[in-house]
């Protein structure tokens, strides 16, 4: 049996190999993704973000166990930054999810960002598709949030969960700056700490201050303790309420369509740019061009505008069945 058939049956080794193929952008990736594409789109995607050490991994571990109790299969993508100096990475989120490794209905993949900005790895979506095709009901994506980089997770996830912890003082201000707009659900983790209730109250007040339309979603604040395994039934209820809200208002579809657009534009930029650069390099113009711009002989915008790009959509039209 081929890799694709095995992976569609849920075979983990096949899935892992497939993920490697897409992550390393092996030539086989294209055929692979085409073959599984009809079997994707069913899984519900949760994004989990928040500051370093907030307990995201521990929280995902518990959430997954509760989802498993309800018989859902769960794929987890844990993303950590690559070192900008060496290109290497330490991917340590599995430390908090050790016993999930042996659960038949769970698959965990660690990914390094490999220089990608925005908190996600380039292969995130392709890996999620493989998890989807292998039969996962939920896909949970963990990414560190720094205040500016969370936007990408919002586009990728159906429901975005922002994890905060109590007692970081003016941390609430930092939350206000970037994170308030992106959360569909707030989780105050480490709810076993005495300051947790205050953080919950503060957050609720801040959420009330945000202007929203009548039918617009108001993010609930859920207190959990990942360490003591409390609050997770309420969290799961909130997730399903948000899912229902998206479906009832048509936002589920529009959000996923936006995601397609986003991915399409992103990939297109990538391709066009790298083709142009490698073309310039092959014809030996690249270094000369950079030198000339640097020496103020050629101006940057004029240089860019002088490049002619010719697009050919004939093959695309064949794909579209024209």
């Amino acid at each position: 049996m081929g890799l694709v058939d095995l992976l569609l049956k849920g075979d983990k080794r096949a899935a892992a190999r497939a993920m490697r193929i897409v992550e390393e952008e092996y030539p086989e990736a294209k055929e692979l993704l085409r073959a599984i594409y009809p079997y994707t789109g069913r899984a519900y995607v949760l994004g989990v973000t928040g500051p370093p050490g907030a307990g995201k991994s521990t929280m995902i571990d518990k959430l997954t166990k509760h989802l498993r109790k309800r018989d859902y299969k769960v794929g987890i993508i844990a993303i950590d930054p690559s070192s900008p100096f060496s290109g290497g990475a330490i991917l340590g989120d599995r430390i908090r999810m050790q016993d999930l490794s042996l659960d038949e209905g769970v698959f965990i993949k660690s990914l390094a960002t490999r220089g990608q900005l925005g908190g996600l790895a380039k292969a995130t979506d392709a890996v999620a598709q493989i998890m989807d095709a292998m039969g996962m009901d939920f896909i949970i994506i963990e990414t560190v949030g720094t205040g500016q980089s969370e936007v990408d997770i919002v586009k990728t996830a159906d429901t975005t969960i922002v994890v905060v912890v109590p007692g970081l003082g003016d941390d609430i201000q930092a939350i206000k700056a970037g994170i308030l707009e992106i959360a569909d659900i707030f989780v105050v983790n480490k709810g076993d700490r005495p300051e947790a209730d205050r953080t919950v109250r503060d957050l609720r007040v801040m959420i009330e201050l945000v202007e929203r339309k009548e039918d617009e979603w108001k993010p609930p604040v859920v207190k959990v303790s990942a360490l003591y395994d409390s609050g997770f039934d309420e969290l799961i209820d909130s997730i399903f309420q948000h899912k229902l809200y998206l479906e009832k208002t048509g936002r589920f579809e529009s959000h996923r369509k936006d995601k397609v657009k986003e991915l399409f534009v992103g990939l297109l930029k990538d391709r066009v740019c790298s083709k142009a650069i490698s073309g310039l390099k092959e014809s030996g113009i690249y270094d000369v061009l950079i030198d000339n711009i640097y020496n103020r002989k050629v101006e940057l915008y004029n240089a860019i505008d002088s490049i002619r790009v010719i697009f050919d959509y004939s093959e695309l039209k064949v794909l579209l069945g024209d």
Binding site: S83, F85, G88, L91, G92, R94, I95, Q98, D99
Partner: peptide
């Protein structure tokens, strides 16, 4: 990591099956 490898680090107390 500093030599450019991607390291999956799983912490203490791993069973062989894990």
């Amino acid at each position: 990591r500093d030599a450019g490898f991607e390291v999956i680090y799983t912490g203490l107390h791993q069973s062989i099956d894990q």
